[in-house]
């Protein structure tokens, strides 16, 4: 992480295309060493062969065109959320909204989403990594989306007063948990919600995502199980009106920086620390671990960069300062290009977005290195415009790509992180432009 001086990295082309039944199970290179204060659960890709949601009845996985369109939708809703939560970078967070018409939300038979506020959550179409959690006493197990770009955890709940989408797990049934309770409207936690309401003294939550998906229901508390750990009194949304692109998941685990996130709610237990590893392929397993960084989670060889916390809640901002291609820093990008726009780390966005000046320099340097190696260009695909035809090749040599952060921490991308594969004849640089330098 201190930065590689290598200028090339090898990639086996077939590793980009795992078969539908080729789950390679856990591929962790380091032993899992449980610590007294850490809890670790597996992360898998929602549509990959290791996913508990995959299978004959899960429906067709989305096409690359659909994935990239959903990714653009998420980025646009993220940009909208960032601009509405700050008055320019470093500005004050926006005022919280109360849910209009809130008292009738859970009981309403209307399918309209007009009674929940717009864009209190991101578009979720590409938050494609899922983790197992337990909820209630005795605990019921659920597979939920893992999202560092939002705060409030929620699951679909019985009796589904208005509507529920189809999910793989059984619905959470509050009546069967001895530790379940609704949060009262007077509880200060109710005011922590981005959008809240009140019904007969019970606090209501509402989240509408950028793609039109939404969840509305009771804000509740119960015991959350993460691996072997139990977090008592964990506050979450018990969704009674849920619709949208959540696939077969039971809900969402919010890992943002805001007050309703698990990060903040379990602060006393884990000290506000967590880490994860996303696997190189959708056919492998990564992990999500809460608690102080242990050697098993690579804490010992991690390079850190300041978490910039003055730019509003929820998101994890960092200071990107430069990009290296083939071991050489791209001199055409003034550092102000990054500092003017800001940069955040998101588990739910697929393709890294850069200010246009930075993207143009990166794609140009990458293309020059690929041309020097004689690789054949391919047509652009959706938001990806720097693509290659690897037909007939079993291994390719890519220029290294590194992201350099404030303080010198460096992300020397794994080969699997440099490109995004549509097909063997269309493998593209896995970055896209924000369109300009100010967006």
């Amino acid at each position: 992480a201190a930065g590689s001086s290598a200028d090339r990295v090898l990639l086996r082309v077939d590793s980009l295309f795992p078969g539908p039944s080729s789950c390679t199970s856990t591929q962790e290179r380091k032993p899992i060493t449980a610590t007294s204060s850490a809890a670790r659960v597996p992360i898998v890709h929602r549509h990959g062969p290791c996913s508990p949601l995959a299978g004959a009845h899960a429906g067709k996985p989305p096409s690359h065109a659909e994935i990239l369109a959903a990714d653009q939708n998420r980025v646009e809703s993220l940009h909208h959320r960032v601009s509405s939560t700050t008055t320019g970078l470093g500005g004050k967070p926006r005022t919280k909204k109360k849910t209009p018409g809130h008292s009738s939300v859970p009981a309403s038979s209307s399918s309209s989403s007009s009674s929940v506020p717009a864009s209190s959550g991101l578009s979720l179409g590409t938050a494609n990594y899922v983790v197992p959690i337990g909820l209630g006493t005795p605990p019921s197990r659920f597979t939920v989306v893992f999202d560092t770009g939002s705060d409030t955890t929620w699951v679909q709940c019985r009796p589904c007063v208005v509507s529920c989408y189809k999910q793989k797990d059984r619905l959470f049934d509050p009546a069967k948990s001895s530790t379940y309770a609704n949060v009262s409207c007077a509880d200060p936690a109710c005011a922590d919600l981005d959008a809240s309401g009140c019904n007969a003294g019970h606090c209501l939550y509402g989240i509408q995502y950028g793609d039109g998906s939404y969840t509305v229901g009771f804000f509740a508390k119960d015991t959350l199980a993460v691996a072997q750990d139990a977090i008592k009194g964990f506050k979450f949304g018990c969704g009674e009106k849920n619709r949208g692109l959540f696939g077969q998941t039971a809900g969402l685990l919010g890992l943002g920086r805001g007050p309703t996130s698990i990060t903040v709610q379990a602060y006393e237990k884990y000290g506000g620390s967590f880490s994860y590893c996303l696997p190189a392929s959708s056919a492998a397993t990564g992990y999500l671990e809460f608690g102080p960084l242990s050697p098993s989670s690579s804490g010992s060889n991690a390079k850190t960069t300041p978490m910039l916390t003055d730019k509003g809640p929820t998101f994890y901002y960092v200071g990107l300062t430069g990009i290296r291609v083939g071991g050489k820093q791209l001199g055409a990008i003034p550092e102000s290009v990054f500092s003017n726009s800001g940069t955040l780390v998101d588990s739910g966005t697929v393709i890294t977005r850069l200010p246009d000046t930075a993207y143009a320099a990166l794609s140009s340097a990458f293309a020059a290195a690929m041309a020097a190696s004689g690789y054949k260009k391919a047509a652009a695909y959706s938001i990806l415009d720097t693509c290659y035809d690897f037909t007939g090749l079993s291994q390719v040599s890519l220029p290294t790509v590194s992201l350099v952060f404030q303080g010198g921490a460096c992300l020397d991308l794994d080969a699997s992180g440099i490109v995004y594969a549509i097909s063997q004849s269309q493998v593209c640089l896995g970055f896209a432009s924000n369109g300009d330098d100010e967006s």
Partner: peptide
């Protein structure tokens, strides 16, 4: 705003510590 997406995070241990206000990257974590 720029966004570091999940494709680029693959195989790295991505570490968040709200109390120390740091984000970390560790290669070869999975």
């Amino acid at each position: 705003v720029g966004i570091v997406g999940n494709t680029q995070q693959r195989t790295y241990g991505v570490l968040y510590d709200v109390s120390k206000k740091v984000v970390g990257f560790a290669p070869g974590a999975c």
